[in-house]
Computed example of a mutant assay.
Amino acid sequence: MTVPLDKSGPADTPPPAAEPETIKAIPVRHYGRWISAAVVLALLALLINAFATANVRYSAIPDYLFNATVIEGLGKTVLISVLAMALGLALGIVLAVMRLSKNPVTSSVAWGYIWFFRGTPVYVQLLLWFNLALIFPYINLGPIYRDEMSDFMTPFMAALLGLGLNEAAYMSEIVRAGIQSVDEGQTEASHALGMSQGKTLRRIVLPQAMRVIVPPTGNEFINMLKTSSLAAAAAQYLELLRSTSDIGQTTGATVEMLFLAATWYLILTSVFSVGQFYLERYYARGSLRALPLTPWQKVKANLASFSNRPSGGVTA
């Protein structure tokens, strides 16, 4: 039987769909944010007004900002902070390796060192170092060095030992945490390739541990800049706070010089914070898919997103 062919032509195509209507996006109103912002701005205005109307001669701050005595104290603050941090970092690495050692003697000695220096205030330690000549009149290192303790333990040396040895206790824990963050398979693979324990630590473990070590180390250095002010009271070291305080006592502008010291401390911490950011960014290579944006890149990205923001409605 022959089936007749369908000669009716193709089915009628449906009419094109109408374009979706533009949706008017109405932003959600966050009244709590406006209220909290108004409260914060009001409190900030009251604080600024209180300091603006206070009996403070603010013109003395720029007058003495670059005073020779202040600049000398500033240089000594940076010097003692850098040297004490370097001493703390070097000794902290040694203590961290000792803590991780399987030798019970070295690990116990390292634990005792950390226990003592973390358990006593740094101000007390500075006082002990500065007054060490009261119990040890001489320092005798055999054929290497021998002198009176009062001549050896200068204010600079007392500040360096007090700050550096105290910092070593904290740095050892930071370095130990960084070393333990590296997978043990890295060490096992390097030993399988014939690398010694020391070479494995230098070339494999520490470079990978730096991304964990650097952020808290930067914070410790910034804290060291501020802790160095204790050396003025404990070890009679003429750093930034001591130099500004001396000027305040001679000129009568005591509070103004404290504001001046705070200004320089803020400048120092801001500068070193920028350096810490770029150091962290450097050691983040290989561990992040995309490196964090620099401050200038963030500004350009925000400006670009603001200029490309659509002005009309949102289509479905």
Rank of each mutant, 00 (worst) to 15 (best):
E256A: 09
W264G: 05
V274S: 10
L260R: 08
I247K: 00
G275T: 01
A233Y: 15
Q276Y: 06
F259I: 15
M257L: 13
T244M: 04
Q276R: 03
E239W: 03
L279M: 12
V271E: 10
T250D: 09
S270Y: 03
R242Y: 13
M257I: 12
A261Y: 04
Y237K: 00
A262Q: 04
F272C: 02
T263R: 00
S270F: 11
L266I: 14
I247W: 00
V255H: 04
T263L: 14
V255G: 06
A253I: 06
Q276P: 09
L260D: 09
M257P: 12
Q276V: 08
V255A: 13
W264A: 10
G275Y: 10
G275S: 04
Q276N: 06
V255Y: 14
T269F: 00
R281M: 09
T269H: 00
W264V: 03
M257F: 14
L230K: 07
Q249R: 13
T263I: 15
D246A: 09
L258Q: 15
Y265N: 02
L240V: 10
L268R: 00
L260A: 08
T269R: 04
G252R: 04
L260P: 08
R242T: 06
A233S: 13
A231D: 07
V271N: 13
Y278K: 01
T251M: 06
V271K: 11
L240P: 01
E239D: 10
L268D: 00
V271A: 15
T254R: 05
A233M: 15
R242I: 07
A231T: 11
A234Q: 14
F277I: 10
Q276L: 12
I247N: 01
R242S: 09
Q236R: 15
T254W: 06
I267Y: 03
A234K: 09
L240Y: 14
A262G: 15
L258D: 04
R281Y: 03
T251E: 05
R281T: 10
L266N: 14
G248H: 02
S245C: 03
M257V: 06
T244K: 00
G275M: 07
A253Q: 15
Q276F: 01
Q236G: 08
V274N: 02
A233T: 15
G252C: 05
A232K: 01
L230F: 13
R242H: 13
E239R: 08
V255C: 11
Y265T: 08
